[in-house]
Nucleic acid binder design. Structure first.
Lengths: 215, 215
DNA sequence: GTCTATATGTAGATAGAC
DNA sequence: GTCTATCTACATATAGAC
């Protein structure tokens, strides 16, 4: 259970680092990279400023760690869902977009504050061209995987169209996450209806640009 | 209310202020509010730092001025287009979204660097909840106007659905503007095709959430 | 209106004691 | 690993000469 590499990670140390990453996640999500300060992160994590540098390795490196920490978990969530969908034999465009979005959206809205912060953090990463390489590393492999599946359903569509639709869908999803609606405040049924609406929008839009205009 | 009628705006002064706002537009667009510095803005505008304060009235006020400067022009562009569309008698959902997006998108892509910067600046404003009041002041009136027209076309649709679709459409549009495709680098025909594709996506998505599921 | 000089605060980062 | 103290740089903002 307990990891022991060199000397002693000392459960306390791991716990401290986790607290720092949690704090960084929140501050970065709220104020962006430039707007966040190491001091505010340290204060929220209830540690000294030097410790944030020690565990984070500088502000930029800390930001990278914060983003990548949950990226694998998110990718696994999506790819597992994709695998389950394919084995069900009922692969459809809507089913693919549902798998890609629903678990993530639900998690960021009702899966605890940290995932909520992570949702906003991802919005920053996706919006700022400066983080393009980081975003590519974290999210492109999974996105490409889904685009492949979509193209298998629409053999005559061009890859550019599917990729464009994916970009628009992600943009709509991030808008949904960051528009400030805390859907958890609604009734559970209403929350699901909101997600359904998002998926309806993206499915219809995607299908429109996948099928030849000369309908 | 009115601008200084006291002495003389002195063409040179107006020119200087315009240069400062142009520089601010570019720097804010590239690095966001926190990432931008008054020094960098001054340097790009080729003036002294004090002058940026003098004309801008502090960093926050300068940001507001930069955003609002072109907002009226943009609103007029859209409302004129809406008026023309209504007088043509051929109002459709696609027509409305076309009016709302095409002129703006084309302008930010081929209307000169300053409009290109402004497109990215608007993306920052739209993404950050801190600028919500500013965004509301600049863009909500026009957006509400278009939502009204959409609801007139779909009497049975709920206002929430139209507003949600509008948010997703704007998100897709901003993604289009900021994904880095310089469509001006493409052939003119290809550029128009890209915009058509964006409008296709939004029209289909919007229609999907405006019509009752149990169709 | 424009420039020089400066006031004042805070940022990221590090050294060294414990 | 953790904390205290500090270095250095740069931020916004302003005062006053011209």
């Amino acid at each position: 259970m307990e990891k022991q590499r060199k000397r002693a990670p000392s459960a306390r140390s791991l716990q401290t680092k986790a607290r720092i990453l949690d704090a960084a996640e929140q501050i970065f999500a709220e104020r962006g990279f430039e707007g966040a300060s190491m001091r505010d992160i340290a204060k929220l994590a209830e540690v000294q400023v030097g410790l944030v540098h020690h565990h984070g390795g500088g502000k930029k490196e800390l930001f990278h760690q914060t983003v990548t920490r949950r990226a694998d978990e998110l990718a696994a969530l999506r790819l597992d869902g994709l695998e389950a969908l394919k084995q069900s034999g009922e692969v459809s465009l809507r089913g693919l977009l549902d798998v890609f979005m629903r678990a993530y959206v639900t998690l960021t809205q009702t899966g605890g504050v940290q995932w909520h912060h992570y949702g906003r953090l991802v919005a920053h990463v996706s919006a700022d061209p400066r983080w393009r390489p980081l975003a590519a590393q974290c999210f492109d492999p999974t996105a490409t995987r889904f685009i492949d599946e979509i193209l298998a359903l629409y053999p005559k569509a061009e890859r550019q169209a599917a990729a464009t639709g994916q970009v628009y869908s992600v943009a709509a999803m991030l808008a949904f996450l960051n528009t400030g609606w805390r859907i958890e405040a609604l009734s559970p049924g209403a929350a699901e209806a909101q997600v359904d609406q998002l998926i309806d929008f993206c499915t219809a839009g995607m299908e429109a640009i996948l099928t030849p205009k000369t309908q």
